[in-house]
Amino acid sequence: MSENDEAALVERAKHDPEAFGVLYETHVDRIYNYIYYRTGSVRDAEDLTSRTFFRALRGIERYQQQGVPFSAWLYRIAHNLVANWHRDTSRRKVVYLDELSMVAESRPGPEDELEFIAEEAWLQGAIRQLDADRQLLLTLKFGEGLSNIEIGRIMGRSEGAIKSLYHRTLIALKKQLSREES
């Protein structure tokens, strides 16, 4: 969808429920993906994804086009909800076994499924210890395969700033993983 098409759709969605439905279908996967990796739980991801879109529904009439993708606004709503979720829930290292099996079934993995899952869970846990901007950057880069320019538009930064942030994120993660491995 081009920028102009999206802008027109957003304006229609302020008054047309079906247009909002199209916006939802366009963005629900990416928002869910982002929240899932921020929370590590399917149940929490579903709950917070719902809240994100209901909040968007309530606020869309006041939404103003500012030359950035509509997804940037949704990501900001999701980020705020996830931040509140982190604040309201105590830190727990609980892995829902039924969710683990769901993740395993969705991947063509190596023979040792448990080891693969453990490695992924460990790395995802390390990612969740990064600050929110770095987590969003990694989600956009690997979850959506976006370029630094596209990521910069969503995060409100220049391409060079994103490139630099990406490099620093890899360095920080490498150090963190080295500490945990040792």
């Binding site: 909002f20 869910y32 991947r107 790395l123 990612i127 690997f142 979850g143 993660l173």
Partner: peptide
């Protein structure tokens, strides 16, 4: 990182129910 952050999608039932509720 690429392996650990493969895109995940919501369950179809959840996605459809949320759309209907919205």
């Amino acid at each position: 990182l690429k392996a650990a952050l493969m895109p995940v999608k919501p369950a179809l039932a959840f996605r459809q129910a949320l759309r209907a509720n919205l």
